[in-house]
Design a binder for these strands. Structure first.
Lengths: 241, 241
DNA sequence: CCATCGACTTGTATTATAGTTGTCTACATG
DNA sequence: CATGTAGACAACTATAATACAAGTCGATGG
């Protein structure tokens, strides 16, 4: 697969910048030029790409520096299902079903890239009743030091050492395959709500991919559709009796 | 049956492209030409075939690359599914299945009150393919002067003489009953996305209630979860292949 | 204290080149 | 006549190499 040079460089730099303190200085364009064996123009394109993402910025005569991050860890807002359950007075329990490092299937590879990934499949229970099967994929690099205990006792975004920015979620429907049906204690062929979520870090790169499967008879999504202005009404997953 | 060379090549390439990340570059036409032992023209015909399908695209002087999925547009206003389809270049057609004034069923009465209602059941088609069964209830008072032609050719909120404010939508899953299955041309028991919507007027009173049923294999909802806004902003309905 | 200088940086051009797609013509094959 | 091969050329792209303007910062010297 062919790649564009300046994108490669940008990717490499993104990794480095992620480890640097906001405000710290990057090497000069010329230095990078010799290091990457690319012309200054190419280096600049990579840097400008990142500037467009708001990751870094530059001042003429001064240099390129890591942008002071305007977004403090507000991400808890992204919210886990557990938090919503906790708010409704139910106690949520996770049980790890599968935990393995492996090469990603195509639909994951398209998002996270070709490197190895950690796949964790968990069953979520509310008051002892199973209500969700969640599969999470994350790059092996990020999941390297995670144990089964870790993922059983914490939501994933608390375990990763990256700052998350947001997510895109798709909501669809499917019917229960035998394995998920057994886990959720519903008959095979029962309707399921199936949500795919791609979570991105502060640089906008996808770092987590997950698939949530809910039995339709217990769950539904509630969405507020404002007419004139985007509302601040929180919405989310609601358990129906 | 003997297959045409460029179709063979296109088939092979389709398989490869499916495994590649959107945006990544294919080998150059010349490289493929030597690999497949076919002339550049033949390779081009295969590539152009795939471009027509929207799988890949090319820029002169740059190369062929895997097409990125169309970014789902955000729905800041209360849009209709038809508008979203129109924006994606599909022509949407409505067909009225049922049209009657009647006393509302309990779940509608709870929202709209006890008065008589107009119930309209419509089948929506995109490019001739059925993709949604929509049932709308509105108070008889508001629907009094509507004809079947009206509701077949216009979305409901254009017909009512009230100012709408917003809506609350629930998204759930179900399996297809025989009647809806036949309309949507899916087997009975197939998974469906089932959305209920309550639309309110400027005064906050509910004026419309509707139920949208989509075949799950063609549709899914896309939701953006931004970092700074805890709300779940609906991004709209997206057709999946 | 302050002005100036020089070494460094980014910002912005220009030119050149190898490699790519877009398009055409001419010809062969069944 | 549809399909395939072979070749040529134009237009475009990413990248390299180079040059110069303009901003930053510290050292120097008055």
């Amino acid at each position: 697969m062919r790649r564009i040079r300046y994108q490669e460089i940008a990717d490499e730099l993104r990794g480095r910048v992620a480890e640097m303190a906001p405000g710290s200085l990057l090497p000069s364009e010329s230095e990078m030029s010799t290091e990457f064996e690319a012309s200054r123009v190419t280096i600049r394109r990579a840097l400008e790409l990142m500037r467009d993402d708001g990751v870094i910025d530059a001042r003429q005569g001064f240099g390129w520096f890591v942008a002071t991050d305007p977004v403090p860890q507000r991400l808890e807002r992204l919210g886990t299902i557990e938090a919503q359950l906790g708010a409704s007075g139910l106690d949520a329990v996770r049980r790890v079903i599968e935990f393995s490092f492996e090469t990603p299937p195509p639909h994951v590879r398209r998002v996270l890239g070709t490197g190895k990934v950690l796949r964790v499949k968990r069953l979520n229970l509310a008051d002892g009743e199973p209500f969700a099967v969640v599969t999470v994929w994350c790059p092996a690099r990020l999941g390297q030091r995670l144990s089964m205990d870790d993922v059983e006792s914490h939501p994933f975004h608390e375990l990763l050492d990256v700052e998350l920015r947001g997510a895109t979620q798709t909501i669809g429907a499917a019917i229960a395959e035998p394995d998920d049906a057994e886990l959720l204690r519903v008959p095979t062929g029962a309707p399921l709500l199936k949500c795919g979520r791609v979570t991105t870090d502060a640089a906008g790169r996808p770092v987590l991919m997950s698939e949530h499967v809910f039995p339709a008879h217990r769950t539904e999504f509630v969405v507020e559709l404002p007419y004139d202005q985007p509302s601040v009404t929180p919405a989310g997953l609601r358990l129906v009796e």
